[in-house]
């Protein structure tokens, strides 16, 4: 069983790779070396739910890898209205994140309307709040 710290790092790794098939996130939890080699540029944004310590740590980890992190307090409105909805009008850009279920629920449904799907999803173990590590990517990337 990985430590929470390891999961945050590896969960992050799981979040930043474009996947050719639906992702088995647990299997990725042992691939820590991938963190350093992943194609980080394929992500448009990383969403961190900073109401929770693990979400905030996830955001820091993503930032350490040079990614553009959007910090939310559970409400995706500003991110959606002022950023993501505009981008997705132009292009089905991949995003990843670690959030509570509520924000992911919203982003997933917005994604459906723009031809994207949740291609990886795993609950963060060992924390009180059921945080989810996830990736949203164009439909074709997981077919």
């Amino acid at each position: 069983m990985p430590s929470r710290r390891e999961f945050l790092q590896v969960g992050f790794a799981a979040s930043v790779f474009p996947f050719a098939t639906p992702v088995d996130v647990p299997s990725l939890m042992v691939e820590r070396k991938d963190i350093a080699t992943g194609n980080l540029r394929s992500l448009y944004r990383v969403v961190a739910d900073v109401r929770f310590a693990d979400g905030a740590a996830f955001g820091l980890e993503a930032e350490r890898h040079g990614l553009h992190v959007v910090r939310i307090n559970g409400d995706i409105t500003d991110f959606w209205v002022n950023d993501l909805s505009l981008r997705w009008r132009e292009e089905a850009a991949s995003i990843a994140g670690m959030t509570a279920h509520g924000p992911l629920f919203c982003l997933e449904r917005f994604a459906w309307d723009h031809g994207l799907r949740v291609v990886a999803r795993a609950e963060v173990p060992g924390v009180d709040e059921p945080l989810v590590s996830w990736v949203i990517a164009p439909r074709s990337e997981h077919r």
Partner: peptide, 18 residues
């Protein structure tokens, strides 16, 4: 219009089993 309503369903002390 906003989506803030979805930020209040998270697990809390008062809502231990969302």
């Amino acid at each position: 219009p906003n989506m803030a309503i979805f930020s209040i369903g998270a697990r809390t002390e008062l809502n231990p089993s969302p």
